[in-house]
Design a protein around this nucleic acid. Sequence first.
DNA 1: CGGAGACTTGATCTGAGTCAAGGGGAGTGG
DNA 2: CCACTCCCCTTGACTCAGATCAAGTCTCCG
Lengths: 226, 226
Amino acid sequence: MRDYSDLKHPCGNCGFRDQSVWQPVSGAALPMLTRGFDRLPLSSGQVLFEQGEENSGIYCVSKGLIGIRSRQGDGKSTLLRLAYPGEVIGFRSFMAGQPHQTEAQALVPSRVCMVPRHTVRQIMDRTPELLGRLADRCLQEIDRSHAHIIAAATRSNTERLSDLLERLMQIHGEQSAEGRRMTLPISRIDLADLLGIRPETLSRVVARLVSDGPYTISGREVLIKA
Amino acid sequence: MRDYSDLKHPCGNCGFRDQSVWQPVSGAALPMLTRGFDRLPLSSGQVLFEQGEENSGIYCVSKGLIGIRSRQGDGKSTLLRLAYPGEVIGFRSFMAGQPHQTEAQALVPSRVCMVPRHTVRQIMDRTPELLGRLADRCLQEIDRSHAHIIAAATRSNTERLSDLLERLMQIHGEQSAEGRRMTLPISRIDLADLLGIRPETLSRVVARLVSDGPYTISGREVLIKA
DNA sequence: CGGAGACTTGATCTGAGTCAAGGGGAGTGG
DNA sequence: CCACTCCCCTTGACTCAGATCAAGTCTCCG
């Protein structure tokens, strides 16, 4: 039996290594992982995978922000959700063995770590725990969906926009003299899609947020006053 | 090595045996399953598990209809969804190792097949495929949630009620001279919860359905004219 | 008989969708 | 450099579905 203990785990330097789906990989499976593992830098707007494309592996968002879109037949596309650093994307398609039902696009310069499909399969044979980790991600996705349904039914659009901005501020915000500020990584139309409302309505919601709350919003510049 | 080939699979006579999460169980794991396996008859209104209760295993709906409810702090409860025959319930709590977040209640006389938690764990050690089957159920749950979100955003309440009645009719309907008829297994309030609308609104939606479509509805008696 | 829910009906209010118009910025071509 | 266009975004007027509030009926059950 070879000794693999000198081999470094590819997630070793990542801030999300403890939650990584690859965390349980060790021993003989580790060189498989390191061989297949690839860090992909993504420029803003770059598409990671297209809707309808065959699954080529699973991706973990390491840095930046990825938008998950659904592309309708008539060319329109709708932003369904955001994938933040630490999230795994493409696993639904991987596990179901079906083409991607959505498109993934970097909304800001980002980096994802990719493991190709056949490598995942190989590792899974040796590391049964991996399937458990992926199942955990499924559960998280279920919880997220349920929370989304509840929020849509019980919270006002203003509250939900405020929640979203807060979330984005945690990732992209910078401290300044007046408070925390950021440049919105997405357009108004995408913002409206995320909340499930029309762009006109979003525009009014933003105006209400600015007039009532501690927000100053101009174009894509957002300031939450301290 | 003992021969277990004479041992009958507990799902052998079930109409859902091919899709059963237990289908891959064989060999030495089979007697574990048959020992732990239990068919529970449920009377109408009987509670299968309570919200907040520790998970005691996973259940497969074999017959009838199970309502999944969320109980609020103030005593109010909301019907979140229906579990039809063939569906597995309680697995989210099982896989996450957390107490049930919802309550399960039989809405009509029903039967569920139960496998206790420790038995599932034992079988899982010997039958890694079981985890894959459970993960498939997770994926189905994700798809159901997504479909729910889409439907809520794009279909009218009348259409959604019509869809729901059609679904229920497939399970509980009987052919009669004028068309298919059934006795609704749930109250108007529960019906309203399922659609995410107020009971008053549901009442009007029902009235619209009767006046516009092929429906005759009186109390809980529903007739879809042929 | 009386009370409690479940359900319906009516009147009114309101938030969001729709339609229409216009401002403003970025890119393009003359 | 300017005019033009396209797209994103905003604003206003109108409409409408559903929520809310209130009242009344019905049934079940003690």
